[in-house]
Design a protein around this nucleic acid. Structure first.
Lengths: 242, 242
DNA sequence: TAGTGGTCTAGACCACTTG
DNA sequence: AAGTGGTCTAGACCACTAC
């Protein structure tokens, strides 16, 4: 939050461009809760004053965060902190281009131990204590997908079903409001699997029917992995679009 | 190829920003074969002269094409036409982040009639005459996926197996070299399906095993749909990453 | 040394939104 | 009318590449 100009850092060997330093300073301010979701940032000129750079340089930093989906810029209005969204793909009718509306339901929130994939993705040791959140996605009221999210229990002390439900089952909102953490997802991995007994029951399909599996990690704005998650969905009625 | 300044268009009602007009002019020049793949474009200042705008405006246009993967910019060297790549996702080991090397083999190139999905995607009538290209993707020598591409036969008169093999089975290279067409893919749709008898045989899996299906359309730099394609892959050994 | 793209500035004007 | 982001310019300097 200091107003020290950024130039001092420009002589260091591992020097970053000014606009990139501006981006990082803004990220820091966001993480420190300086502005709430939906709130407007100061104007480009105010930020330029604060960071001791020109308005064009601030613009480049803001544009990069807008491209990442962290900020929303509207001509004539200002630059706003984006509402965080659970940025999974969307259900669509095959061949269609319009995403369908979905609803989320919390199934469980419990401690578990890291399996091989989760441990590797989160850079933890195998068996580390995780929190596992299990949710059901519905399309037009019908079960479409089961999502499991895993995070390090240590970092998310106090997470429980009540807090998740308060945020309408949007975990990104929970990470942001309760833990001051904003995350961005890496490109997912895809696999075709079979419905186990549990998924078959939840999704209302027969066991041994093919299910689409989507797995991904998400990291903080600084790049550190925070969350590993898997979505399993039936694709007999709808398809999944990235 | 004319050198008329761009300003004249700025008074039109559907006016585009100058940098966007610069982008379109460069796209046009690329499509007219002014530069080959791998070749360098004129410098920013030369292009600025040619289009009658400032160097910064040219830069914005070039940057947007670089972001789309059409151009590659290298400090101190210049701006180059990117080699076209078949931009499917990659095969990876589960949990890994490094893509594996793949090879392509042409299975067939034949005429067919547009099914419902292909017709809709390509904005043609159902039953329109298409060219269907079928290829096999191998990872470490083992069959991994079957890709089918569909294009309007009318637009790709003269396409045959020989021309495809000459381009190492890279269809994007064929579109570019033989038909002067550069395409960009839209986000794909995913589905979990079952291996039919034909895919099972080609991929070396049992019939009724789950297969991952990835479908997408690709359009020209002007946005018109050109190609519809489907990839079907086994995900028992490797996974598919976007 | 010359030429390229990469960064940064200062200032101008435009388009849009709100009061 | 005032304030915001969006575009555009002209010019400066830097970092990298080639010769």
């Amino acid at each position: 939050m200091s107003s020290a100009p950024l130039r001092g850092a420009t002589e260091l060997p591992g020097r970053q461009p000014l606009y990139s330093q501006v981006r990082d300073r803004i990220v820091l301010a966001i993480e420190q809760g300086e502005w709430d979701a939906g709130e407007a940032l100061p104007s480009e000129f105010e930020l330029a004053d604060r960071f001791g750079v020109s308005q064009g340089t601030v613009r480049k930093g803001l544009d990069s965060l807008a491209a990442e989906g962290v900020l929303i810029r509207r001509q004539g209005m200002g630059t706003f902190i984006a509402e965080v969204a659970d940025d999974w793909g969307k259900a669509e009718l095959p061949g269609a281009t319009r995403p369908l509306d979905t609803s989320l339901e919390l199934l469980a929130c419990a401690r578990s131990n890291a399996g091989e994939e989760a441990a590797e993705a989160l850079r933890l040791r195998r068996g580390a204590i995780l929190l596992a959140v299990k949710r059901l996605v519905r399309v037009a009221g019908e079960p479409f997908a089961v999502i499991e999210n895993f995070v390090a229990a240590e970092r998310f002390e106090g997470l429980d079903a009540r807090r998740i439900k308060q945020a309408n089952c949007n975990l990104r909102t929970v990470w942001w409001r309760e833990f001051g953490l904003r995350v961005i997802s890496a490109p997912p991995q895809f696999r075709a699997g079979m419905a186990g007994r549990e998924e078959a029951r939840l999704l209302g399909v027969e066991a041994d029917r093919p299910l689409l599996e989507v797995a991904r990690t998400a990291g903080g704005l600084d790049g550190e992995p925070v969350e590993w998650s898997v979505l399993r969905c039936r694709t007999d009625h709808y398809v999944y679009r990235v």
